[in-house]
Design a protein around this nucleic acid. Structure first.
Lengths: 223, 223
DNA sequence: ACAAAAGTGTTGCCAGTACACCCATGA
DNA sequence: TCATGGGTGTACTGGCAACACTTTTGT
């Protein structure tokens, strides 16, 4: 391309599907829309890309401001550019997935915001605006691919976790059941986690061993 | 997001890494830049996204106009939004890979264009403008991931091919050597190709069998 | 003691890998 | 007949899947 002197500017919105694990459940963060149209429906967090920031900077700044999360882990997902994805407006959506561990969610910074937000189980997404349902679906597909081909879940478990916990997260995202014994064998043999020596006591049943992800280990093709 | 009444519009350029296989070599199509800055350097085909077309429509229309290719196979790659990827201009690049078989390249439609274009071996990319070298690198990485996890190469071989040909393409893209016997076994056992009964005669050495991809077969995790 | 949940071991199978010889053709 | 490149089989290994019983805790 030789020439950028075009009048054809576009509005770009960045949309982010933020996932966390809370009490063993995989959740996605949505905001409630407070104005017409689609008043009362839910939507992905996101905002208009400004000319002095990259997509990633834009999202980080936005989630800090609106959610109080600093240092959100981000990966790019897809671009949605269909002309009528928003009626009567041309808005190109660049989408990302974000991962944040539940402890960081608890420790989030104070925000002054009137946004109504809620974490939804990924198998129970509410009514959403425009094409956000499709975007959420693609984001979950992307996450699925990533937990198979990388150890991205390390982000969601920065400290100790039990193997049954980890397994349940895989099962929710992959939408399938896994064999406990084979799951253990696989993860332990992969060499990317280590036993902390501690146990997860205080629950009913036998206490589970606590593991942690090793540092500097880039996993490949887990499933 | 509630409000699109922003003054913060952006220029979006779509850039496409078009790959083909010609005489056994994997190639990418680049254009020569004819104006300063970077006059004489090479660049990815692409143009400014207009408000009445989606990313995919934009690319299809553009490659038909500038290259004469109709029905290019396209997949989305990454977005490049660093503020200074182009000095003094804010242009967001949405990138795709495209695949076209060599027969369709030969049969391309007549175009009236003064563009100087050339197919480059993917292991011998010339000097390129701005961040196009990085984009090309990421596109090849993406292609690598796709030929491992899908049978996308079917697009490059719509008609008969020999297994040694196919293997050489894998070797170039994965940048590794593969065992001939194991490669054959794998592809034949996968059940996604079939023997045409014909042979590739007229070359030195024993003629190779000609295979074709079966219809409606979505391969998974090939390597 | 019982209920609840976690930990463990064996076997069969299939896919991946390493490896060497024979075959069909053109020159 | 020779040079060139293509086709084939075997044995080993490691990962994956299927499967049932024992262990540790709280109540």
């Amino acid at each position: 391309m030789d020439n950028y002197n075009s009048e054809e500017n576009s509005i770009i919105e960045s949309l982010i599907s933020i996932f966390t694990v809370n009490k063993g459940e995989v959740k996605i963060l949505l905001f409630r829309k407070k104005t017409e149209p689609y008043k009362g429906y839910w939507m992905l967090p996101g905002n208009v890309l400004k000319s002095n920031e990259s997509l990633e900077e834009n999202i980080n700044e936005y989630v800090l401001l609106k959610c109080g999360f600093s240092e959100l882990y981000i990966e790019q997902c897809l671009v949605f550019s269909e002309i009528n994805r928003i009626p009567d407006k041309r808005v190109v959506a660049t989408t990302c997935i974000g991962l944040i561990d539940s402890k960081s969610v608890e420790l989030k910074q104070e925000i002054s915001s009137t946004i109504e937000s809620e974490w939804f189980n990924i198998s129970a997404i509410p009514k959403t605006i425009y094409d956000h349902a499709e975007i959420i679906g693609k984001s979950i597909d992307y996450l699925k691919e990533r937990i198979i081909n990388s150890n991205i879940l390390k982000i969601l478990f920065p400290s100790d976790f039990t193997l049954p916990e980890l397994q349940k997260v895989y099962e929710q995202i992959l939408d399938t059941e896994l064999d406990r014994r084979n799951f253990r064998k696989k993860f332990i043999n992969l060499g990317l986690i280590e036993d902390t020596g501690y146990k997860n006591e205080g629950y009913t049943g036998r206490p589970a061993k606590l593991y942690r992800f090793k540092e500097n280990f880039e996993g490949k093709n887990l499933f």
